[in-house]
Nucleic acid binder design. Structure first.
Lengths: 223, 223
DNA sequence: GCAAAAGCAGACACATCTGCTTTTTTCGTA
DNA sequence: TACGAAAAAAGCAGATGTGTCTGCTTTTGC
């Protein structure tokens, strides 16, 4: 996605862009189609991010991928930037949803949770998310969207872990380490896996050992 | 850097592009200036990668950053692509050099080595390298350059670690785990630090605990 | 049913990037 | 000192991306 002029003024009269207050004010039928089209565009954007990377994702490509005209797309987002921002938010929602869904069927042991997290990182959604996170390093507007999203994700992830393993609440310091270690290691491994392939064996070794490390950190197992 | 046509045929008569056989065949004086200009261009590219990201690094920007004309740049590299590839190789060399340099003055304990690695990841060079590594996911030509580079880096890193801690040679399995764990965790943390800031406290906690984990993995400390 | 509004498509103008070609400058060497 | 090759600058045409604008179709609310 090429350099675009800095965001336009929100222009209050227009179609509500990111927030979807419309559906509440006007819960009528046609708005449903609109939402569906937006979804199609966002999903197309995600696919493009995976296929072409952020650098080479362009509005024509997204439109083509979505099977829509570029005009249609700019009707819904009016900006390449806004499309990206909306996509980032949507990716966040998807990740969160996936976690919630997994949480229900999860055994309450570290191994399961670890592998659940890892599985998430293998999904294309993670690649797309990573592309945007990386882009946000130099795109302040994207960063402004990413920041709260990331914060919420960490909170939810924190909550889920505590919910599954209440004993951790006894030692929040150790818990913090365990979380940080898990997150950074797994995400680092996921990224390295994408660029320079890692053999499955190494992945297993790391996962297994990480599990051991976490178990050692658990309050009831410590001296 | 925008989509460019797939690589041109090497055209043997031209100025030797990546390999610098020129300096050997023609070790004369003026070639030194040429090499210097190449360096200037590559360094400018690195700075651009950091400032603008790969997506928004363009040949005009690089030329301006280098204080040269675009024509001059295409005289030396004839291709935006080749410039990026050369930059990737150069970044690799720089990383390797930094490691070798550090290796000399290093105490032989895990903590020092860990922090040495971490310090490398805080340098702008790592960001630039990461930008290219990420780009190589969808750019096969870049990937073709990255692959051997990465392999060599891993080997050197492996060698260095063994050299500093010969006792690891006794248990290569544990060694492999320790290396993978260290690399993935630190790199993951470095990347997360760039996009969404991590507080220094957490970083310290992770580093300290990682050190402990590695010590536990050491052959002479195990049961 | 009809006017207003939204969904959608295509065309337009502007900007910019890319690679190529041509010209000027620099500088070593005969 | 003058020649010639390499370095550097400048100019050019093609391609592509971006945002805006206009027009057509469909839905919605009165």
């Amino acid at each position: 996605m090429k350099a675009m002029p800095t965001q336009k003024i929100p222009s209050p009269g227009k179609t509500a862009s990111i927030g979807s207050a419309r559906q509440l004010i006007e819960p009528t039928a046609q708005a449903l189609k609109s939402a569906k089209t937006r979804s199609r565009l966002i999903d197309a954007t995600i696919r493009c991010l995976v296929k072409f990377s952020y650098a080479d994702t362009t509005t024509p490509k997204v439109a083509e991928e979505a099977g829509l005209s570029r005009g249609a797309m700019l009707h819904h987002f009016e900006n390449g930037r806004q499309l990206m921002q909306a996509t980032l938010v949507e990716l966040h929602r998807k990740r969160l949803r996936a976690f919630r869904r997994a949480a229900g069927t999860l055994d309450h042991d570290a191994r399961t949770l670890l592998h659940a997290y890892w599985d998430q990182l293998l999904r294309p959604n993670f690649i797309a998310f990573q592309e945007l996170a990386n882009a946000s390093r130099t795109d302040k507007e994207l960063a402004a969207v990413l920041e709260p999203v990331r914060r919420e994700f960490d909170e939810r992830w924190h909550e889920l872990a505590i919910e599954l393993f209440p004993e951790w609440a006894d030692d929040l310091a150790a818990f913090k380490i365990a979380l940080a270690l898990t997150q950074n290691t797994l995400e680092g491994m996921a990224l390295n896996r994408v660029t320079h392939g890692i053999d499955e064996e190494t992945i297993s070794l790391v996962l297994d050992h990480l599990e051991k490390v976490i178990l050692d950190l658990r309050p009831d197992r410590r001296s």
